[in-house]
Design a protein around this nucleic acid. Structure first.
Lengths: 158, 158
DNA sequence: ATGTATGCAAACCATTTGCAATGAC
DNA sequence: GTCATTGCAAATGGTTTGCATACAT
């Protein structure tokens, strides 16, 4: 398994970043990074907080926010803002850029690998250094579109 | 000018939607729709509230939220969630789908017309009815990347 | 020894909710 | 007349902030 290797690699990158920016290398920061890189898919502050506590490493929410900020800055974590709910995050390294298909009714987020955009297209953007992109496709999932039809039928009958 | 024509058209669509869903056609709702369709570009609840008040039509924030909800549901308005700040909205009708280029440092949002995705590609998504999509390209704008370089240089010297 | 990072509690702020008064039907 | 809608004020909840304590340097 190369999860170990990736974890080593991102830790080194994080150390390099903290050294350069004169940030202290605390055990909390390493634990948070390591924990994030053991999560597959999205997480939010609550789920991160809970799962870390479950594994016996309690960190305050302030520290989580503080550390995520650093991880975003050095591009080891990506932040998403689907709908109005809590921000979602995911690891950036060893995690291909993918599109998100979001249901505007139930808020369900599905991922899709079919990258619709090529990197060469992104390079065309002037006076801008692209660090990542998010493709959010909003619509109604099959479950909710069924519910919508039902509701409409009921209204028509009234 | 065809702004008038569009306003008439969306009003009719809104009426149709409200009739079908048995919602009451209040003066507030029409005023809000009309006002939104006089705004070019993005707006948020605060700017909408303020500009409506400036034009002599005061509506409560509750009503704004309430009405925007309806307008989103009938696809006359699109909602965006750039960063953690307040949601941004824009009219949907007579406003081509465009990409957003967002600076992760200063939060500035630039629009670009070069639609990177074709509709046929979107049709490929299974079990999902696409109503719109948002392409968010995150990165650092030229102004901020300059500021970053300065900051890094200062750190290196220390 | 110095001052950054942590953790707690309080503050913040966009959005939501509860409820009495209003007005569309 | 009925009940959805409005507008106000209070509540909510994710995130931020202030500050005393802990600990990396």
């Amino acid at each position: 398994m190369d999860g170990e290797k990736i974890r080593k690699q991102v830790k080194d990158e994080f150390i390099e970043y903290m050294t350069l920016h004169k940030h202290r290398k605390t055990s909390e920061r390493f634990a948070i990074l390591d924990h994030i890189y053991s999560i597959k898919g999205h997480f939010n502050m609550d789920s991160l907080y809970d799962s870390m506590k479950d594994e016996g490493f309690r960190v305050s929410r302030s520290t989580l926010y503080n550390t995520i900020e650093l991880l975003l800055d050095c591009n080891l974590v990506v932040k998403h803002q689907f709908g109005a709910n809590a921000s979602q995050y995911e690891r950036a390294y060893g995690n291909e850029n993918h599109d998100h298909i979001i249901c505007i009714d139930c808020g369900d987020v599905r991922e899709s690998r079919n990258n619709l955009i090529s990197d060469t297209q992104l390079k065309k953007i002037k006076k801008f250094t692209v660090s990542y992109y998010s493709m959010y496709i909003y619509g109604v999932c099959s479950k909710c579109s069924h519910a919508r039809r039902m509701k409409l039928n009921r209204m028509r009958k009234k």
